[in-house]
């Protein structure tokens, strides 16, 4: 059991990194508190893997600061790496080494792994450790990396799309494992495109796009930031409703979207016209992310 303190496990601010003309990171900010499962989301090419590689000391940032477990991810890489485990998005194994050998090797290079937990995890993930690296399927390669990381005794897990390639059953096992890790008090940075997984596991999420953080907070807070869609049938037709979006008036029927904090005003306006029926949809997590994922160049541009 690790002692929780108020310090952040990861603090990143104003991180810049470019590859030639591609600006992969454009002043990215990220805070992950000790003991939380932090979802790291964003569309393809947003810069998630790049951020993770900077945090692992594999890439050197152009500017900005990053602190990992109280150290500098570039300078203190080898000592910090004893305290974390990493699962890459694209797992490739050595063709001639068996899965079991890879698990043990990576665990030992990190400073040891728990044989009991290794055994449990192999069972839970239904993984045959005797196969050679080249004969594993994509999902099974992913499992090898997951077992190697989860069986290690570390404070921080950095997982880059760890469930890509896992079948739904194994994804369920993965969720259980992360729940266990959370109970043990470990910190998890989880990059993922599977929203149900994020919804089920994450205490807080950060959404990034084009190398910048566009939103960060608990899912509740993020929900609050999005719009509810409302369809209503009215007694008398109305001309307009102030402060709503995508308003469509079809005789007595109106449909629109409204920001959470303005629902009350809109409903008051409707009730003046007499409400016959009303259906409201709270934002689904998909809608929430769609809104952040879709490129809105004028929005980010105007905000600056």
């Amino acid at each position: 059991m690790y002692v929780r303190n108020m310090e952040n496990a990861i603090t990143v601010s104003g991180l810049h990194k470019s590859f030639g003309r591609t600006h992969a990171l454009n002043g990215l900010d990220l805070q992950v508190a000790v003991g939380e499962v932090h979802g790291f989301l964003g569309p393809n090419g947003a810069g998630k893997s790049t951020t993770i590689r900077v945090l692992l000391g594999l890439l050197k940032a152009d500017s900005g600061t990053a602190t990992l477990l109280g150290g500098d991810p570039w300078k203190d890489a080898t000592t910090l790496h004893r305290r974390l485990a990493y699962v890459p998005g694209d797992v490739t194994l050595w063709p001639g080494l068996s899965g079991g050998e890879v698990i043990d090797l990576l665990g030992r290079l990190r400073g040891g792994l728990d044989p009991q937990r290794r055994k449990d995890l192999l069972e839970r993930f239904d993984l045959d450790p005797r196969k050679k690296g080249r004969t594993y399927s994509k999902g099974n390669r992913q499992k090898v990396a997951l077992v190697a990381a989860l069986a290690s005794d570390v404070e921080l897990l950095i997982l880059d799309e760890p469930t890509s390639g896992l079948d739904p059953l194994m994804e369920g096992v993965f969720r259980e494992c992360i729940e266990d890790e959370k109970r043990r008090g470990r910190t998890v940075l989880l990059s993922s495109h599977i929203l149900a997984e994020v919804e089920a596991l994450c205490d807080r999420v950060s959404i990034i796009r084009n190398g910048q953080t566009v939103e960060s907070g608990t899912l509740e807070q993020l929900r609050h930031l999005t719009r509810t869609s409302i369809v209503a049938e009215l007694a008398t037709p109305i001309g307009t409703i102030p402060g709503v979006h995508n308003l469509a008036i079809d005789g007595a029927k109106v449909r629109f979207e409204v920001d959470t904090e303005k629902i009350d005003d809109a409903l008051k306006h409707l009730s003046h016209a007499g409400v016959r029926s009303l259906v409201s949809h709270p934002p689904t997590i998909e809608e929430l992310f769609m809104r952040h994922y879709q490129a809105e160049p004028d929005q980010t541009g105007a905000e600056r």
Partner: peptide, 20 residues
């Protein structure tokens, strides 16, 4: 099939390089 567990020696970068 290979071994289910790594031999005790396979625990350093040099041991890995030897395998490769």
């Amino acid at each position: 099939l290979g071994p289910a567990e790594a031999a005790p020696r396979l625990s350093t970068p040099l041991a890995l390089a030897w395998r490769l």
